[in-house]
C-alpha cells in the first residue's frame, strides 16, 4: 500500500518536471485558443512560446531592453516570450543563432549596433541585410568615464594626459570589437592620443575594474555607470552623441569639445530572413507598441537609455548606413 503511494509520488514529480518546461507552452496555447476560438487555431500566429534571443549576458542594457520589450510582447501577443541569453563573439553568437532560426516568427532576437560591425571586424558573417528588421528601440551614446579622483576634469585634459603618457591609459570595454571598444579607438584615432584597450566580458566587469582602480577609464554607456556616478565614485568626461544625454545634462558632448566624433550604440529587434509577411507585421506592431508603452519609457529613463523608435523600414535603412560607416571606419583603426 505504502509502496504504491510512493510510486505515484515519483510519477507525479516526473510529470511535474515535464510540465515545468512545457508549462509555458501549454499555458500560452490555452490563452490563444480562448482568444481565437472561431478561427483556425493551429495556423494563427502566434500560438506557442516565442524565443527572444539577447546576444549579451543578463543584467546589461541590452538584456534590460530585451526583457522589458519581451514582457510587453508577452501581454500583447498572449503567448510566453522567453528571453534567452546567448553570449559570445561580441554578440555574433546570438545573432548568428537568430539568423539560423526557422523563419516562423517563434525565434526572434535583440540586435545591437554590433550587427553592423562584426563583419568589418572579421568576427562573423553577420550583417543587417541577413535579417528582417522589426524596429529600433533605443540609442545609447558612449560615455568616457573615469574615477572621480582622477587628475583630469574635462575631456581635453584627459586627452592631453593620454598624449603626455602614451600607452599608460587603459580603457576598459565590453569586449574586443564591441561598440565601446570602437568608441575608445575612434577617440584615439580622432585626437591622436594613445590608449591600451582592455576587453571584458560585458560592461559590468569593466566598470567593476574601474572602481577597483585596475584600469584608468571605461568607454561604456551612461546607464552602466550611472549608479556609481550618482554615488560619487566615478565621473563622466564626455558623451559621444550629437546632443547631450538627458540622464546627464551637465556632461558635454565630444562635438562641443571640438572633437568631431559621434558614436552611439543602438538596439532593435530582428527576425530571421524569410518570415511570412503577416507574421512580420504582427511582430513589428508588437515592437512598436512595446517601445511606446509607459513601462518601456519608465524603464529606459530609469536606466538612462534613450528610447528612440524607428519603424522597420527606417531601421533597415539606418542599419545599412551604419554598416557602411563602420566598414569604412574600422579597417583604419588600430584595435590591438
Amino acid at each position: 500500500m505504502k509502496k504504491w503511494y510512493l510510486m505515484i509520488l515519483v510519477l507525479f514529480i516526473a510529470l511535474l518536471a515535464a510540465c515545468s518546461s512545457e508549462a509555458n507552452n501549454s499555458g500560452g496555447e490555452n490563452e490563444t485558443e480562448d482568444n481565437t476560438q472561431d478561427s483556425n487555431e493551429e495556423s494563427k500566429y502566434p500560438n506557442k512560446q516565442i524565443e527572444l534571443v539577447v546576444p549579451y549576458s543578463p543584467g546589461g542594457a541590452s538584456d534590460m531592453v530585451g526583457r522589458t520589450v519581451g514582457s510587453f510582447m508577452e501581454k500583447e501577443l498572449g503567448v510566453p516570450v522567453v528571453v534567452t541569453n546567448k553570449t559570445g563573439g561580441t554578440g555574433a553568437v546570438g545573432m548568428s543563432y537568430v539568423e539560423g532560426k526557422n523563419p516562423d516568427g517563434y525565434g526572434i532576437g535583440y540586435v545591437p549596433v554590433e550587427m553592423s560591425m562584426v563583419k568589418a571586424l572579421g568576427f562573423a558573417d553577420v550583417e543587417p541585410a541577413n535579417f528582417e528588421l522589426l524596429g529600433r528601440a533605443i540609442v545609447i551614446p558612449a560615455a568616457v568615464t573615469v574615477p572621480a579622483d582622477a587628475p583630469y576634469d574635462t575631456i581635453e585634459e584627459f586627452i592631453q594626459y593620454a598624449k603626455d603618457n602614451p600607452g599608460q591609459i587603459r580603457v576598459g570595454n565590453s569586449g574586443t570589437g564591441s561598440i565601446w571598444h570602437i568608441a575608445a579607438a575612434g577617440l584615439a584615432e580622432e585626437t591622436g592620443a594613445e590608449f591600451k584597450y582592455v576587453p571584458f566580458d560585458g560592461a559590468a566587469p569593466a566598470v567593476a575594474a574601474l572602481l577597483g582602480g585596475h584600469i584608468e577609464a571605461v568607454s561604456v554607456s551612461p546607464s552602466e555607470v550611472k549608479a556609481n556616478v550618482d554615488g560619487g565614485d566615478l565621473k563622466i568626461l564626455a558623451v559621444m552623441s550629437s546632443d547631450r544625454d538627458p540622464t546627464f545634462p551637465d556632461v558635454p558632448t565630444l562635438i562641443e569639445s571640438g572633437i568631431d566624433l559621434e558614436i552611439a550604440a543602438w538596439g532593435g529587434f530582428a527576425a530571421p530572413k524569410g518570415i511570412p509577411d503577416d507574421v512580420k507585421s504582427v511582430l513589428e506592431e508588437a515592437v512598436k507598441k512595446a517601445v511606446a508603452s509607459e513601462e518601456f519609457q519608465t524603464v529606459s529613463t530609469e536606466r538612462g537609455l534613450n528610447a528612440s523608435y524607428l519603424s522597420a523600414e527606417e531601421f533597415t535603412d539606418f542599419a545599412s548606413k551604419q554598416f557602411d560607416f563602420y566598414n569604412e571606419l574600422i579597417p583604419n583603426m588600430d584595435l590591438q
Binding site: 543584467g59 566598470v207 567593476a208 556609481n228 550618482d230 554615488g231 524603464v299 530609469e302 536606466r303
Partner: peptide
C-alpha cells in the same frame, strides 16, 4: 555597487530598477 555579484543578482538588478530602485551607493 549596483553591479551583479553573480548571474542571479544580474537579473535582480533589473527587477529592482523596475520597482524604481537603482541599486548602488545611492
Amino acid at each position: 555597487l549596483g553591479l551583479p555579484g553573480d548571474s542571479v543578482t544580474a537579473i535582480l538588478i533589473g527587477a529592482l530598477m523596475m520597482y524604481g530602485m537603482q541599486p548602488g551607493p545611492v
